[in-house]
């Protein structure tokens, strides 16, 4: 079952590279994050905490890199150039933000290393984590080049949601316990609800019908989420989407290790794509000299 899925998916991906990628996908969810629009407000991160029952671990554990933020804002500073020998850790300007959630790699490095096949690729093109199958070997986390998998070192339930806060928990997905790896799911519970609704009404899922919690919350609409199957498989009957438009506009392609731009002024890249992980999230930022 799952082990079989995993082995099939992996070989299918490797074989599919010559034939043009995965086949028999139902959807392929992707994202576009515009870093020039991102103001680093962390609203996406907070929305993710609320939507996905993420534990609040507290300051001590946060310092030990045990935070459970599926969507984290990485902050980078330009070289400190304050003049007159002044050095400041936090400058007045020159900050850039990089919202990082699971990149949903097509050739995910976390998948083949799981000893119990708790992580695998779904027909939705997502990199799934099955909590009740996970034994907590943390191999996947060590193999993730983005460090976007989070491990439950403790049972956070009682500390994180003391009564009556447990009533805010989202019932559509599990509350993870100690010893389990977890990661961004592209709000799979929302995907399921939307797909079920479309199925009930006997129609295809429309673009923009639903979105992830982070994309919904983003005040500058920097995050765009949608189905990219049409881009991956031109024979697909799924409707085109805003994400595909953006990927095409910025000339970002799937299945390559380096984006060849006709015009160097066109933005758009994928993080660490030279590692051949083939992520499904595109970032928009102009490469500049600092």
């Amino acid at each position: 079952m799952s082990l079989q899925n995993l082995l099939q998916d992996w070989s299918r991906y490797r074989r599919g590279r010559e034939e043009g990628g995965f086949h028999n996908y139902e959807h392929m969810w992707g994202m576009s994050i515009d870093l020039n629009l991102c103001i680093g407000c962390n609203a996406c991160s907070v929305a993710c905490y609320a939507e996905n029952n993420l534990a609040v671990v507290g300051k001590d554990k946060y310092e030990k890199h045990q935070a459970m933020h599926w969507m984290r804002i990485e902050r980078y500073w330009d070289e400190p150039d304050l003049g007159e020998g002044r050095v400041s850790e936090y400058q007045q300007h020159g900050a850039s933000f990089l919202p990082m959630n699971c990149q949903q790699c097509n050739a995910a490095t976390c998948e083949p290393v799981c000893p119990v096949a708790a992580t695998y690729h779904t027909p939705d093109g997502l990199n799934a984590q099955v909590y009740n199958r996970c034994i907590g070997s943390r191999y996947c986390s060590n193999n993730c080049p983005y460090r976007l998998r989070y491990f439950n070192f403790y049972s956070y339930y009682e500390d994180s949601w003391p009564e009556p806060l447990n009533l805010q928990l989202n019932p559509d997905l599990s509350v993870r316990d100690k010893g389990v790896m977890e990661k961004c799911t592209f709000c799979i519970q929302r995907i399921r609800v939307a797909k079920d609704k479309a199925q009930r009404e006997h129609r295809v899922l429309q673009d923009g019908e639903f979105t992830t919690a982070c994309a919904q919350t983003c005040p500058t609409s920097a995050i765009v989420f949608g189905d990219m199957l049409k881009m991956y498989d031109p024979n697909s009957t799924n409707p085109s989407s805003k994400v595909i438009e953006l990927w095409e506009k910025h000339q970002v392609e799937l299945g390559v290790t380096e984006q060849e731009k006709h015009n160097p002024k066109i933005r758009g890249y994928r993080v660490l794509e030279h590692l051949n992980t083939d992520p499904c999230i595109m970032f928009l930022d102009r490469v500049r000299e600092v």
Binding site: M1, D124, R192
Partner: peptide, 9 residues
């Protein structure tokens, strides 16, 4: 369906 995420998520 055989997908794990149909029931576990």
């Amino acid at each position: 369906p055989h997908d794990c995420w149909k029931c576990h998520k």
